[in-house]
């Protein structure tokens, strides 16, 4: 038996460690280069009128193009999606965590949630097109988009809700139940307030996902180049990512405007996430 050289073993470890560090650095570098390349492309087009002007196709007036209808459309679609998906998702999370943790029914429902989370987003677009737009006859409106995105973000809301509820100590429930509170009273008055920071995180994740989704809405039939602001659930609509994509398709002259749209989208996403972190920290401080 020949002993292995410790130096060789150490060298191997060092080589692999270098690989691991490189893997992490690669991810960090990509994020850096990605943000930089988008901002660099967008720089000449970053102007306030992006927020107030309507989309254009006339390539001589690139610097007058804007995202007004897309921004309002995003607000409508995301807002309505949250209004639909949060009650549903949080309710489902409560049921799975508090009422049916180990039952067979819970396993089936849980499998439904995990598998829904794995469905490619473009397939939700087909669902929305066939079901909401055509079969229900809603047409290509905000409501159809929101219903589609509700299905898409539902699993994320359920998963974060369950994690948040699971983190609430059992003693809080026991204390409330021991005072004679019913199960629902305990959940509403004790568990949900205690789980609020986690629920907030879930809603933010849902909002961020809904905001960034492009493919399902393209399939659904979002209308780029809209010259008016969406007014409600029954309005035709365009959202930021679809408008960005539309500008990009229009030609190389529009890449700057498209990149500028991405800067707006990323800023909104970062702001929402940042606000969530701040809020969560504040809520957490008052806990128990």
């Amino acid at each position: 038996m020949r002993p292995k050289s410790l130096r060789v073993r150490k060298a191997k470890e060092a080589a692999y460690l270098a690989g691991f560090v490189l893997a992490v650095l690669a991810a960090l570098a990509v994020l850096g280069v990605l943000l930089w390349s988008i901002v660099a492309q967008a720089w000449p087009q970053l102007r306030w009128s992006l927020l107030t002007n309507y989309p254009l196709t006339d390539s001589t007036r690139v610097s007058e193009a804007g995202y007004a209808s897309a921004i309002v459309g995003t607000l409508w679609v995301v807002g309505l999606t949250l209004a639909l998906s949060l009650p549903l998702g949080i309710g489902a999370g409560i049921y799975l965590e508090e009422y049916a943790r180990q039952s067979r029914i819970s396993r089936v429902l849980q499998a439904g949630v995990t598998n829904l989370a794995g469905v490619p987003s473009v397939v939700f677009g087909l669902l929305g097109l066939a079901l909401f737009v055509r079969a229900f006859g809603l047409g290509k409106v905000v409501l159809a988009a929101s219903l589609t995105l509700t299905i898409l973000v539902f699993p994320y809301v359920v998963i974060t809700t369950r994690e948040a509820i699971r983190a609430v100590p059992q003693s809080i429930r026991d204390g409330s139940l021991a005072l004679g509170a019913t199960k629902w009273q305990t959940i509403r008055k004790q568990v949900l307030p205690a789980a609020a920071p986690g629920l907030l995180t879930g809603s933010i994740i849902a909002a961020a996902r809904a905001m960034g989704e492009t493919a399902p809405l393209i399939v659904l039939g979002s209308i780029p180049l809209m010259q008016f602001l969406p007014w409600g659930p029954d309005s035709l609509f365009v959202v930021m990512p679809v408008q960005i994509y539309a500008y990009f398709k229009t030609g190389p002259a529009w890449h700057g405007v498209a990149a500028a749209g991405m800067v707006i989208l990323l800023l909104i996403l970062f702001a929402v996430n940042g606000a969530a972190v701040v809020l969560r920290n504040r809520l957490q401080r008052q806990r128990w």
């Binding site: 390349s37 988008i38 492309q41 960034g212 493919a215 991405m262 990323l266 996403l269």
Partner: peptide, 9 residues
Amino acid sequence: IPTIVFGFF
């Protein structure tokens, strides 16, 4: 980060 941003990248 939205996938469309990765596409542009």
